[in-house]
Amino acid sequence: MFSSLDLDIQPGEGLGIFQLGASLWAVLDLLRTHHHAFPHVAVQYDADAPTTPVLLHIRPHLDLLFSPAQQRLHTIAVRSLRDPNPPLTLTYKSAVLSSSSKPLRRVDVSRAFGPTYPGRHLQYPGVRFLFEDDANGEKGERTQEVARILVTQADGHDGAGIPDALGEPAVCPAMYGDVAEAIVKVHEGVDLRFYAAESPIVVRVRLGLTTAQDLLTDLGPPLRTFYKEDDRMAIHGRTHPDVLPAPSYFYNYFQYGMDFLIADGTHVVTKIVMHSNIPGTALFQRYKRCPWQIEGRPEDDEDDSPPRVRFEDRVETISHFLAPGEAPPSMHFNRTDEEETLTLRSATTRLLGFDGIILEATEGAQVVGVTLV
């Protein structure tokens, strides 16, 4: 026995609990909390693409398409409207459009949404109703059943088109409070620009200066505080075997895709870690994608747009940007060594060390994380 799935269409904004512009991390977390309503979810992506659109296929009715760079919900597709497993009920402005006993036809759409531009399909700002190519039948066009529904942001031109599937959603309320840019300044720290309803909010975190209290004030409480116990990397920097590293702890801001290592004695930030949330890697979905950019030195004092490399660039490009002509030292790292039952295509990564910064990259040259030290 399947429970009914009731979803409200919000043209240009979303469908049911799914809001356009929401992050992949937030939507997958939402699906976990509603696993009884959405028990079957498949994550699909191109494993060979540095930044890939991600498709969440929620059987049997929904496909959620996320943009390749920002991992934002771009398009919601509704299909198999008459599939009874589970039965689907669609509403618009509190009125039932479609259910297992009420098919949605072309004439029903016109009655609910009004007139629109002529064409094979019915298009309105933020929502589109598609029909099968050979669905005219003997009863005529008015009784065609809707085969699929697409919910997107409204097109900026005529208000009825479909935004570029590989583009990024426009800034909307679902993004407010998320990191829009993380500008990395080697040896200094990171400037965080947040989406906001009016002017963007900027928070600056500086190595050796920003305190734990500053983070609590500017970013709010972390989702987890983790006391550092894994000192496997310390052997590479230890000058005497009896010298132990100073105790420290992490503030884990999974919702921003960032970790801050804080010295236990001074309580200042000593390390900043930013995560790219690459599908197929060991840390996928543990952190929201942090849209980091590494800023280089300006050409002169009047240069107000210094060069940058971004998380979607290949590791070779970023390495050349950080140290032209040099081959950085690297080590292999497998995050699944302690997970015997976990098998991943990108389990082993490389750690590439530069002056003040470490890159973690997959065998496919995607940078999964950046650490400022």
Rank of each mutant, 00 (worst) to 15 (best):
V370A: 02
G156T: 06
D29N: 15
G156V: 03
E295N: 06
F254M: 10
F38E: 03
R232S: 09
E229N: 08
D133Q: 09
Q44L: 13
R32K: 10
L88K: 01
G126S: 12
F284T: 09
G237I: 05
R120I: 10
L283M: 15
A361Y: 06
P87C: 11
D259P: 02
A77K: 13
D155S: 13
R148F: 08
E339I: 11
Y176F: 11
D191Q: 15
M274G: 09
Y117M: 13
R82Q: 14
F254Y: 11
R72C: 05
P169A: 01
D337H: 07
I278C: 13
D259K: 06
P115T: 06
D158C: 06
E198R: 14
P279K: 03
K139I: 00
L81M: 07
G208H: 06
F254T: 10
L62V: 12
G364P: 05
G189M: 01
S100T: 10
V373A: 11
N334E: 04
K228D: 09
P245H: 04
H61W: 11
T33H: 15
L344D: 09
P222E: 04
E188W: 10
R193D: 11
A323G: 04
S199F: 14
T371V: 14
P222K: 01
S319C: 00
D164Y: 09
G140S: 03
C290T: 04
P86I: 08
T281R: 05
V203Q: 08
R289A: 12
E295D: 04
A165D: 08
P222R: 02
E13M: 15
P324I: 01
T349A: 08
D155I: 07
D301E: 14
V367Y: 03
P60S: 03
V179F: 00
P11W: 06
I262S: 00
G140H: 03
Q70H: 09
T281Q: 03
M274F: 09
T348V: 15
